[in-house]
Simulated scan of single mutants.
Amino acid sequence: MSTDRRFLTRSMSRAQPGPPVDVTFRAPVEFVRARLPAGLGVPEPSGEHGCRLRVACPDSDMGSRSGRRGG
């Protein structure tokens, strides 16, 4: 495999989004928006007293750092 092709293959695999994270908060959307870092994403209303945040992890470690572990 040529060097250019290997570089392209590695670059493309790095550009893939990580696993999706779907978080439901039991708090009004305005309350959660005011407390989340802007770069994390924008929660959407979900029901009368809750909201939901859906994002793709930037890397595979994000799930474990956010407490998203099995068991």
Rank of each mutant, 00 (worst) to 15 (best):
D22K: 06
L53K: 04
R26Q: 14
P45V: 06
L53A: 07
C57N: 05
R69W: 04
V42H: 05
C51T: 00
V23S: 00
V55G: 03
S13G: 07
P19I: 04
G47A: 10
Q16G: 04
P20K: 04
E44M: 08
A56C: 15
D22N: 09
V55K: 05
P19N: 07
C51Q: 00
C51H: 00
R69P: 00
G18D: 09
H49Y: 15
F31H: 11
R68P: 02
R54N: 07
V29P: 00
R65N: 12
A56F: 14
V55Y: 03
R65S: 06
E44V: 09
G18R: 02
R26T: 12
P20Q: 09
L36F: 08
C51P: 00
A34M: 08
Q16K: 11
A15E: 15
S46F: 10
R33S: 05
L40M: 15
D61Q: 11
R68Q: 10
P37V: 09
G67K: 00
V21H: 04
S13K: 12
S66R: 04
R69N: 15
S66E: 08
P20G: 02
G18Q: 10
F31M: 06
V42W: 07
G47N: 09
P20M: 04
D61E: 13
P58W: 12
C51W: 00
R26N: 13
P58N: 12
M12V: 11
